[in-house]
Amino acid sequence: MWRDDAAVQIAAKYGTIYAIHQESDSIEAGSNGGRATVYGLDPDVIPVILNLEKGAYPKSTTLVVVGSTLAGRLELTIGSKIDIGDADEGDVTTVRVVGLLEERGMSMDLNTDSAIVGSEKLFTGIYGGEGEYNQVNIVVNDLNDVDTVKTAIDDQLNRKEDEVTVQDSSRMLESITSTLSTMTTFVMAIAGISLLVAAVSIFNVMMMSVSERTREIGILRSIGTQRDEILKMFVYEASILGVVGAAIGAVLSLTIGYVLVLGMVGTAEYFFAPGSVVYVPVAMLVGAGICVVSGVYPAWRASNLDPIEALRAE
């Protein structure tokens, strides 16, 4: 429970403050059922912090808005009725859907995608606990005020002993960003090692090709083929290997990546976003370039073989 008028006044100067009532309960809509999170919020705050995909915001205690994931799972539309509570115990409250919320994703404040959101009076009418809540959120108007608000509330409520825990969601975002950065660095290191292995492999393949075709090179030189033509022949061969390999790698990467993202996240809606797809042609160019560079020395060696010595090779 969190209740302090001075702290409310402090927070209200810097942004929007609202209390969250939250409970998990059984729900039923027509022939579909399951469990969902039920939120109770100040009706005046709901339009400020939540965006509608369609419909309207709840104006009475019998109206609610629902998240996109829950709406899809229970086939809810505007006007659908939901029974909240356990029918076997005879404690059921029926509400009507007046709005569908935009997809919001995971967050530290409200996870509304699989939830029902109604007024505080609706919530306390079902679960009781009027004036009591376990979490209060503050949406600041300016991110630069976060530390000021946090310090002021901490000084007001935790002067003698710790009564509340004050968390800054931006710190969580920094932690997640740091973790993702570490993972990205790790993946890039693996990619770098893979490129190095690929370069060595291409180099070995080209060197073997030169060794196996020494006599062929000698014949070409003896009939008047110039050194730069021999050089270009082997560079072109390395280029073809690089382009074909990069194309196959790009197709496999997109296919495997799509399957992994779909399995882990549940949607691949943003997988083909321009910011992500742009790395595919870049990676192809890098791969093809590595192959060309790896084939330069074998090509140079082939072009500088002595024709007479090359013809003697078996």
Rank of each mutant, 00 (worst) to 15 (best):
272 F>K: 01
66 V>F: 10
282 V>R: 04
209 S>G: 15
76 L>N: 04
265 V>Y: 06
267 T>S: 13
128 G>E: 08
304 N>E: 08
166 V>E: 05
187 V>T: 13
151 T>C: 02
314 E>F: 06
36 A>R: 03
258 Y>S: 12
115 A>T: 09
169 S>L: 14
128 G>Q: 08
123 F>D: 02
249 G>T: 08
288 A>R: 05
274 P>T: 01
254 L>R: 02
9 Q>T: 10
240 I>T: 15
159 R>N: 11
130 E>A: 15
163 E>M: 15
279 Y>D: 03
192 G>Q: 10
129 G>E: 14
251 V>F: 11
177 T>M: 13
25 D>K: 09
88 D>A: 11
19 A>Y: 07
75 E>T: 14
4 D>E: 08
11 A>L: 10
178 S>D: 11
99 G>K: 10
122 L>E: 06
243 V>E: 07
154 D>Y: 06
93 T>S: 11
9 Q>D: 13
195 L>P: 01
29 A>R: 07
302 A>P: 00
54 K>L: 14
301 R>V: 00
211 S>K: 15
56 A>R: 11
6 A>W: 00
47 P>Y: 07
283 A>F: 00
42 D>E: 09
205 V>K: 03
203 F>N: 13
80 S>E: 10
167 Q>F: 12
192 G>V: 11
73 R>K: 14
50 L>H: 05
283 A>L: 07
21 H>I: 03
209 S>F: 03
